[in-house]
Simulated assay, not measured.
Amino acid sequence: MQDISGKRVAILATNGFEQSELEVPRDKLRAAGAEVHVISLKPGEITGWDGSDWGRAVPVDRALSDVSARDYDALVLPGGQINPDLLRVEPVALEFIRAFWTGKKVIAAICHAPWLLIEAGIISGRKVTSYASIKTDVLNAGGLWQDAEVVTDQGLVTSRKPGDLDAFCAKIAEEITEGRHERRAA
């Protein structure tokens, strides 16, 4: 994975995130040199979902009310069914995501997290992938769904499932290294 020393990455999540989809990117991006913050709606801890039951708690580094997209180079959105479903009804979370998009910064979403891209209004006309069960949601929102391990479109990185995490993390680092991405009209 490319060295991304000096870069700052936000991971936006709440309770019910897929355990590996938060922890693996957090750890791999830190190992590549980035400063990574887990951001949530409230301070404290959030609890993941691991397999068929609740997983481990993860400390929240910053509350969403205390940060801005200007503070970061990239945003990672872990999936799981619960996490993105809870976040997509939170206007402050959607505004945070949109601010990365309008700032031409990297946004990476895995599994069910493209639901957040749909709600933020940034998926239409973009090549993306997702967990298979939300393919129709992506298509109905105007996304150009592809059955691939990782799909990238102008700094938007999407991946299907936890088994694709190595490629997903490597692509995030590559996109961060490239810098800001021009957003052409879809």
Rank of each mutant, 00 (worst) to 15 (best):
A132I: 14
H112P: 03
I134P: 04
L139I: 14
P91G: 11
A99I: 09
D137K: 09
K105N: 10
K104Y: 11
V128F: 09
I134R: 01
A120V: 15
K127D: 07
I97E: 00
W101Q: 02
I122S: 11
A99D: 15
R98N: 09
S130M: 05
F100L: 10
L117A: 10
L139V: 14
L117V: 14
G142C: 01
F100D: 04
A93Q: 00
S124C: 10
I123V: 15
A108Q: 09
G142W: 00
W115D: 03
G142N: 03
S124Q: 15
Q146R: 07
P91Q: 11
V89D: 14
V106L: 08
P91K: 08
V106I: 12
D137S: 15
A109W: 09
A109F: 04
K105Q: 08
L94R: 03
Y131T: 02
G103C: 07
S133N: 07
P114A: 03
E119A: 15
H112W: 01
R98T: 13
E90G: 03
E90Q: 13
G125A: 06
N140L: 14
T129N: 01
G143N: 02
L139F: 06
R126F: 06
A113D: 07
D137C: 06
E119M: 12
I123H: 02
N140A: 15
V138A: 15
W145G: 08
C111G: 06
W115L: 06
T102H: 14
R88I: 04
V92D: 13
G121Y: 07
A120N: 13
A141E: 10
T102P: 02
L144Y: 08
W115G: 00
T129D: 03
G125E: 12
I107M: 10
T136I: 14
I134S: 03
L117H: 11
A120I: 13
V106P: 01
W115N: 04
R88T: 10
A108C: 09
E119H: 12
K127H: 11
L144C: 11
H112R: 06
G142P: 02
G121M: 07
